[in-house]
């Protein structure tokens, strides 16, 4: 699992690559939350395009960040063009509450 967390103005850009399962969600959660709360960032852009695997542990991770951000008055959006990731996002109902864009630029424009 490769994780990159960068600050872009008021947004935290989180890019995930590789396999997101229960084994590595805790590490990912800690890294995202540390940056998010330390830098008092409002919004999160979650780029899932590099994921080769994601199960419901990843859904739990996204739902948890969604709750934090709502409490903070911010917004979360996802970037994805991967059909396997989309399938699990759809099953979980996440697509009904979080918008997905094909590129980071589009996500930045719409956040």
């Amino acid at each position: 699992m490769y994780l990159s967390v960068e600050k872009h103005k008021n947004n935290l850009l989180v890019q995930l690559k590789g396999e997101l399962d229960h084994h590595n969600t805790e590490m990912v959660r800690q890294k995202i939350d540390k940056q998010y709360f330390e830098h008092r960032i409002k919004n999160i852009i979650l780029d899932l395009r590099g994921l080769t695997f994601m199960d419901s542990s990843g859904i739990g991770l996204v739902m948890g960040r969604y709750k934090n951000i709502l409490e903070n008055g911010g917004k979360i959006v996802m970037v994805n063009d991967n059909e396997y990731v989309e399938k699990i996002l759809k099953v979980s109902g996440l697509l009904k509450i979080i918008n997905v864009y094909p590129t980071i630029e589009k996500a930045m424009e719409n956040i």
């Binding site: 969600t25 959660r29 199960d55 419901s56 859904i59 739990g60 699990i88 099953v91 979980s92 109902g93």
Partner: peptide
């Protein structure tokens, strides 16, 4: 049941069995 988890403090989605059933 979808979204039911016995461990909400662990940020589990409660979607495990639903995913198994769907996939």
């Amino acid at each position: 049941e979808p979204f039911y988890t016995s461990k909400p403090d662990l940020e589990r989605s409660g979607m495990g069995f639903t995913v198994m059933e769907t996939f």
